[in-house]
């Protein structure tokens, strides 16, 4: 979309992997904010739901060159080509949508009937299925966030950049007689919870926002970052994500995408 167009937002994130300590506060904040269900035994991560997941990456080298890095992975909010994100066009029931005004990929759990085609389409494993009905420990129902509906068994869910916060912020701005949001007015739960300040959130189209200044997205090349320290996951697929990662280490930046001439195998997280 046109960067000059003031009405078109492109909300995105910049996650500084040099700062991330892997503490998991972003995951916890996300689960609490979005009423993400959990089970008593949630050890099988392929069956549990976590909109934000922190991966542990290694450089695969022996001691003493061994290095590790933590990589938080929210929904990448892919724009693809002109809003044709991998998951949106495949949904048969129009239960997910690419919002051209904010650049956020929405998910409508009450519309989803659980075919899971979007999960097959997403290369980031961002979309997760409710294999069970959510059961909250006694009393915890009262702690649920009233701004986010809980989901039932049999539907897919995913991170939506805390879209309810966007709605609340725009409502407030409207009451204040404003059309534009300040940078700090709309922030995701994970960005606010990160104690290291590794997660920055804002409008990638707005030159005054930190995310724009740091990532320096190149709109003529599908949003590719101009900052040499920045990279996006699986850049080559053309998913055009709105989550940028920063790292001073070359092996980390390389671990973000597949290389045809791969010389070293990156070990499993």
């Amino acid at each position: 979309m046109d960067q000059q167009n003031g009405n078109t937002k492109k909300y995105g994130m910049v996650i500084d992997l040099d700062k991330c300590t892997g503490c998991g506060a972003c995951m916890v904040a996300c689960m609490a904010e979005n009423n993400v269900p959990f089970r008593e035994d949630d050890t099988d991560k392929l069956l549990s739901v976590s909109w934000m997941r922190v991966y542990r990456l290694g450089n695969g080298k022996p001691f003493p060159q061994v290095e590790e890095c933590y990589l938080p992975r929210p929904c990448q909010q892919c724009e693809g080509h002109a809003g044709h994100s991998p998951c949106v066009s495949v949904c048969p029931a129009t239960a997910t949508d690419y919002d051209m005004r904010t650049g956020i990929v929405s998910q409508i759990p009450t519309r989803c009937f659980g075919c899971r085609y979007c999960m097959a389409a997403c290369p980031y494993h961002v979309r997760q299925f409710n294999w069970w009905d959510p059961i909250w420990p006694d009393g915890m129902e009262r702690m649920l966030n009233p701004n986010v509906s809980v989901r039932m068994r049999g539907v897919v869910e995913k991170c939506g950049f805390c879209f309810h916060r966007y709605q609340l912020a725009t409502d407030k701005a409207y009451l204040d007689g404003r059309r534009e949001l300040e940078e700090g007015e709309y922030q995701t739960a994970c960005a606010q919870a990160c104690p290291a300040g590794a997660i920055l959130f804002g409008d990638l189209n707005n030159p005054t926002h930190a995310v724009h200044k740091i990532a320096q997205p190149d709109s003529t090349h599908g949003g590719r970052p101009r900052n040499p320290k920045a990279f996006r996951l699986l850049e080559r697929l053309g998913t055009n994500p709105k989550v940028y990662y920063l790292s001073s280490k070359e092996w980390v930046r390389k671990a973000g995408d597949n290389q045809v001439q791969r010389t070293e195998q990156t070990p499993k997280a």
């Binding site: 048969p92 029931a93 009937f113 659980g114 075919c115 899971r116 299925f129």
Partner: peptide, 15 residues
């Protein structure tokens, strides 16, 4: 499908 009772959405709300 995860929600068989909603299977008709594929026709009604067809993408």
């Amino acid at each position: 499908v995860g929600q068989p009772l909603r299977a008709w959405f594929i026709f009604w709300h067809a993408n």
